[in-house]
């Protein structure tokens, strides 16, 4: 009997608010802002009886194929923005989800209920890691995509109301292509996130109280102490920059797309270079670019480190049951 799907479902039940409602509120806020923008543009227009800013009527007369291509690319960019903004929310939700994942149930003693069922600690830890790495990003992607579709409908109706045909721009954009590419990025992002997933779950399984302090302050204090020892001329670890980047990998790798800015990605193999091409959004998300990340040692060192931390989290989960004992 494979218990994993049910364990993932359990995580969803417990954290429905963060997994589902947070991205709905965030993308909903963008949609509301869009509606407000449309309304204020209309009010401005009718109040002033003049055309301020870009004029839809003007556009209708002098529209060219190039303009349509630009508009289509603009739509692709908007789609990316929807996912991007929701992903910022996802980062915070994931971070605190992982910190609490193996701690909250020990604090409220419900761990004794979970442990009274025939589920191994490996399955438990795996379900939490997979939730953060795959389930949550996919839910966010789904919500952001639906919100983007709603956005398309809104803007199309508005433009259509002004006698402009939105279809050429919509048909020129790549909603499906973008979505498939974004889905293809998820596994790479998941591998990239492993060190942070492992680090946070490790402390979540380890501490008796205040997992945030341990997971966040400890590495920061280590970094500062090392720099201070260096300033005093005492023996210390030489590469403060390396230390800082390790720290960044441990704490911030669950930020979707954080790999784009990493050092390792632009070193060596030219396929690895990631450049956001604003003029052609869809091609900059090409899987051949993203999967170049798989050729960097940075990714794989992180994967190994993350797996070691997850292994330790499983061991701790076996021993540390309640926080009070």
């Amino acid at each position: 009997m494979n218990k994993l799907p049910l364990l993932l479902k359990r995580e969803y039940w417990e954290h429905r608010g963060g997994f589902l409602w947070a991205p709905i509120w965030i993308t909903g806020a963008i949609l509301i802002l869009t509606v407000l923008g449309i309304i204020s543009a209309e009010v401005f227009r009718s109040n002033a009886h003049v055309q301020i800013g870009f004029s839809l009527d003007e556009l209708r007369r002098s529209i060219s194929a190039e303009d349509i291509a630009k508009a289509a690319n603009g739509l692709d960019l908007v789609q990316l923005v929807f996912v991007g903004v929701a992903s910022v929310g996802l980062f915070f939700v994931t971070f605190f989800y992982l910190l609490g994942a193996l701690y909250d149930d020990r604090r409220d003693r419900s761990v004794l209920f979970w442990k009274s069922l025939p589920i191994s600690d490996t399955e438990t830890v795996a379900s939490k890691a997979l939730t953060a790495m795959l389930v949550m990003p996919l839910i966010v992607l789904a919500v952001a995509t639906l919100a983007y579709v709603a956005f398309l409908v809104l803007v199309s109706v508005w433009i259509g109301a002004h006698g402009l045909n939105p279809l050429p721009a919509v048909l020129g954009s790549h909603p499906i292509g973008m979505l498939l590419r974004l889905i293809a990025i998820v596994p790479v992002t998941a591998l990239w996130a492993l060190p942070t997933v492992g680090w946070l779950l490790f402390w979540s399984a380890y501490v008796r109280s205040k997992p945030f302090l341990w997971a966040v302050l400890l590495p920061v204090v280590a970094l500062i102490a090392n720099a201070w020892l260096g300033a005093l001329g005492a023996p210390h670890f030489g590469g403060n920059l390396h230390l800082a980047s390790i720290l960044g990998r441990l704490l911030f790798s669950v930020m979707p797309g954080s790999w784009a800015g990493a050092d390792g990605i632009s070193i060596g193999n030219e396929h690895v270079t990631f450049n956001m091409n604003d003029d052609h959004v869809v091609s900059s998300l090409d899987p051949s670019h993203i999967y170049g990340l798989l050729a960097t040692p940075n990714l794989w060192i992180g994967v190994v480190g993350g797996l070691v931390l997850l292994f330790c989290a499983v061991q701790l989960r076996q021993r540390r049951v309640e926080t009070s004992v």
């Binding site: 419900s110 004794l112 209920f113």
Partner: peptide, 15 residues
């Protein structure tokens, strides 16, 4: 745990 059941005290079901 497939053959053993366990009730600690009243407070252990997740709220």
């Amino acid at each position: 745990m497939e053959q053993v059941c366990f009730i600690a005290d009243v407070a252990v079901l997740p709220r």
